[in-house]
């Protein structure tokens, strides 16, 4: 009882509702990988490209995750792989969000023929199963990480365009926007100052959730042989190399767990972010 009778002005510190255990775990995992990305050069681990030991050695004290078919340290390659996966996904998400929300905002704000044409393009692009579209684009542009990134931007921008258009449409008819227009605000000012600030939160939630999916698709494309090429320590291509040496399970274990942890981490984070930003969800 006494706890409820807090003195005026003395607010009890409350644990934020959205900050639950999964969100903390998500923060932990993603924080770890970001740290690895930034500092992996200074870690006391072997060079990821050099042959450092005998090939196909099982995990040992010297090589915690074992060595692969070329005698390279799997732990070192896994940690260096974070750079490719995370930076690539970051770039893909940023470009997809920028392109998608610009197009979506224009479509929603202008309306009419422009809206119709842009949204049909969105519909058509979204009609392809993501992996097939990504495979077709990467194969057409030529295999490689950069082209795989372009392919994934093409896969993801329409999702943000559709989201942004919906947001802009719903905010556009609110009174404060009408007031701004009546007060003589220009189109760009209305859109940038009065509509967009109220439209970004679902985009942010979606982008966090999609981050994991982009990591997965990057790895999948590399696994198929359309993404990173050897000797790049990219997780998908490491698993693809490991698949040949099937009985040496440890070659695949490191990169596989890495992908799983990143995807899980972003899912946890996305859930927490939704609780924080979306008042409708319980």
């Amino acid at each position: 009882m006494a706890e409820n009778l807090a003195l005026p002005g003395v607010r009890r510190r409350e644990w934020p509702k959205w900050l639950k255990l999964p969100v903390l775990i998500g923060f932990g995992i993603i924080g770890f990988w970001v740290l690895v990305c930034l500092s992996v050069d200074f870690w006391p681990i072997d060079n990821p490209i050099d042959m450092v030991a005998r090939r196909l050695q099982p995990p040992s004290f010297d090589h915690w995750f074992g060595t692969d078919a070329l005698g390279r340290d799997v732990l070192s390659r896994t940690l260096h792989g974070a750079r490719f996966s995370l930076m690539m996904s970051c770039a893909v998400i940023i470009f997809a969000v920028l392109i998608g929300s610009t197009i979506g905002a224009i479509a929603g704000y202008v309306g009419g023929f422009v809206d119709g044409a842009l949204m049909r393009l969105v519909d058509v692009t979204l009609s392809f199963p993501p992996i097939l579209l990504a495979m077709a684009v990467t194969a057409a542009l030529g295999p490689g990480l950069e082209n795989a990134a372009v392919a994934m931007i093409i896969v993801w921008w329409p999702i943000y365009a559709r989201l942004m258009r919906g947001q802009v449409l719903s905010v556009k008819s609110r009174e404060h926007v009408e007031a701004a227009v009546a007060a003589g605000a220009s189109h760009s000012r209305t859109l940038l100052k009065h509509i967009l600030p109220l439209s970004w939160s679902p985009i942010l939630i979606n982008a966090t959730m999609d981050f994991g999916q982009v990591v997965l698709l990057t790895a999948s494309l590399s696994f198929i042989g359309l993404g990173a090429s050897p000797p790049t320590p990219e997780w998908g291509s490491m698993i693809s190399e490991g698949a040949i040496h099937f009985y040496q399970w440890w070659i695949c274990a490191g990169p596989g767990i890495a992908i799983l942890s990143v995807v899980l981490g972003f899912n946890f984070l996305g859930d927490g972010l939704r609780d924080l930003l979306d008042p409708r969800s319980k």
């Binding site: 994991g212 997965l216 790895a219 999948s220 696994f223 998908g236 698993i239 693809s240 490991g242 698949a243 099937f246 009985y247 399970w249 695949c252 990169p255 596989g256 992908i259 799983l260 995807v263 899980l264 899912n267």
Partner: peptide, 21 residues
Amino acid sequence: LIGSSTPVFWSGLIFLYIFSV
């Protein structure tokens, strides 16, 4: 959640290793 976060090309290899090998 783990099911939908695991890359299938990896879980496929792991399952093959466990159940087949």
